[in-house]
Simulated scan of single mutants.
Amino acid sequence: MTLLILGLILWIVAHYFKRLAPDLRASMGNPGKGVVALLIVVSVLAMIFGYKWAPFIPVWFPPAFMVHINNLLMLVAFFVYGMSATTGRLRGKMRHPQLTAVKIWAVAHLLVNGDLASIILFGGLLAWAIGSVILINRAEPDWKRPKPGDAKKDILVVVITLVMFGVVAGIHIWAGVWPFPG
């Protein structure tokens, strides 16, 4: 559990560094980007292995139907995340699509995982995403909404959403977690 918590803390510190210490981060130049990227990779590995190795301590017992809600929310999360990269009509509909997708992802996983390690991991990343939105909005209160593009590009986001959902479901199956209701 310690490795999981350390990974989560490292993730938060690495991501908040630019917002909380902008002058220090700027003084590091391009090598600083590499250091932050390395810290993020290390934090992800620590969270993955910390979660895998954490003891299973049940806190609550999610009902089976939550798997359906989780899968629906995951489709929404992939779609919302994809909105950040689209040049279609959806561009600019939401200020923080990636962070919103992380929030949806975290809530979806909290609905189907009732153990302490899951609550720490997904709850911690949910708190990080909420905090990130607050920090960004305070630092940059004026957001210039991008102009919408071609609607055909939005169809591509739907296709990518479905493909990514399939890939991630496959990774879960490979890792021994069946993501679909029995």
Rank of each mutant, 00 (worst) to 15 (best):
L4M: 06
L4A: 11
L6M: 10
I9T: 14
L10G: 04
V13S: 14
F17T: 01
F17Y: 11
K18T: 07
A21T: 14
P22I: 02
L24W: 08
R25T: 02
A26K: 15
L38V: 11
L39M: 15
I40M: 13
S43I: 03
V44Q: 09
L45Q: 05
W53P: 00
W53A: 12
A54W: 05
P55H: 05
I57V: 14
W60V: 04
P62I: 03
A64T: 14
M66T: 11
L73D: 02
L75Y: 01
F79I: 02
G82E: 00
G82S: 09
M83W: 05
L90A: 09
G92T: 00
K93D: 03
M94Q: 06
R95I: 10
R95E: 05
P97E: 04
P97S: 05
Q98I: 15
L99E: 00
V107A: 11
H109T: 00
V112A: 03
S118K: 05
I119E: 04
I120R: 05
L121W: 08
G123H: 09
I130K: 00
L135T: 01
L135M: 14
I136M: 10
R138D: 14
R138S: 05
W143C: 06
K144S: 12
K144D: 13
K144N: 12
P148Y: 06
V157G: 04
T161D: 11
F165W: 08
A169T: 10
H172L: 15
G176N: 08
G176Y: 10
F180Y: 14
